[in-house]
Simulated assay, not measured.
Amino acid sequence: MIENKISTSYKNDIQKFKIFCDETGRKEDEQSFLYYMYNSIENERVKKTTWEKRVVAIRKYLTVTLGIHFDDSIRSKIGTMRTMYHEDDKMDLIQVKGKSPGYAPYNFRKTQVLSMHAAGADLSTIAKQTGHKSLETIDKHYLEVSDPTVDKYL
């Protein structure tokens, strides 16, 4: 059961859909919804997370405001559109959970800590250079003791 209230967080997505329908001379219905969602992937190249939010927002709008209910064929077409994000030319539109695109500041900091440690710098020098207040944090989160390092001190 879909609640009969539209979240204010959907306002922008709904407004874009209305503008799209107006500019293309389309009626606000299921077919316009499908065409808009397809256009969002192919022409706008929106991120998958944005696309998913649009699906929910516009579906909610059409259901609550216009009383349109989506049958299995519409759900199936949306499911098929989702698979478009796995095409080679659209893989960049998927944000992998837990992975940031490119390099994160943590990666640079860890590289610096490891390089300084390998060069023989003591933990307090590394902490000062990298802005850490706790030597324990450096030891626990950044440094890994390798077998050659252990062997060197035996």
Rank of each mutant, 00 (worst) to 15 (best):
M1E: 13
M1F: 06
S7D: 13
T8Y: 12
S9D: 11
S9T: 15
Y10N: 11
K11G: 03
K11W: 07
D13V: 05
D13P: 02
I14H: 04
Q15C: 06
Q15W: 03
K16N: 09
K16R: 12
F17K: 00
F17N: 01
F17L: 01
K18M: 09
K18R: 13
K18T: 06
I19V: 15
F20K: 03
C21T: 01
D22I: 05
E23M: 09
T24I: 00
T24D: 00
R26P: 00
E28D: 06
E30D: 12
E30P: 05
S32F: 00
Y35F: 09
Y38R: 05
N39M: 02
I41W: 01
E44I: 04
V46G: 02
K47S: 10
W51Q: 02
E52R: 10
K53S: 13
R54G: 05
V56N: 13
A57L: 07
A57K: 05
A57F: 08
I58H: 00
R59V: 01
Y61R: 02
Y61C: 04
L62T: 02
T63I: 07
T63R: 11
V64E: 02
V64N: 06
I68K: 07
I68V: 13
H69E: 12
D71C: 06
D71K: 12
D72P: 00
D72W: 02
S73G: 03
R75F: 05
R75A: 05
S76D: 12
K77F: 01
T80V: 12
M81P: 00
R82A: 08
R82H: 14
T83C: 03
M84Q: 07
D88T: 10
D89R: 15
D89F: 08
M91F: 04
D92Q: 09
D92S: 14
Q95R: 08
G98R: 12
G98E: 10
S100Q: 13
P101I: 11
G102A: 04
Y103D: 11
P105C: 04
Y106K: 13
N107W: 10
N107T: 09
N107S: 14
R109V: 14
R109T: 13
K110L: 13
T111M: 15
Q112G: 03
V113Q: 12
H117K: 15
A118H: 10
A119G: 07
L123M: 14
S124H: 15
Q129C: 07
T130C: 15
T130F: 07
H132T: 01
S134A: 12
L135P: 00
T137F: 03
D139R: 15
D139P: 01
K140I: 09
Y142T: 10
L143I: 15
E144M: 07
E144H: 11
S146G: 02
S146T: 14
S146D: 06
D147Q: 11
V150Q: 13
D151P: 00
K152I: 08
Y153T: 06
L154M: 12
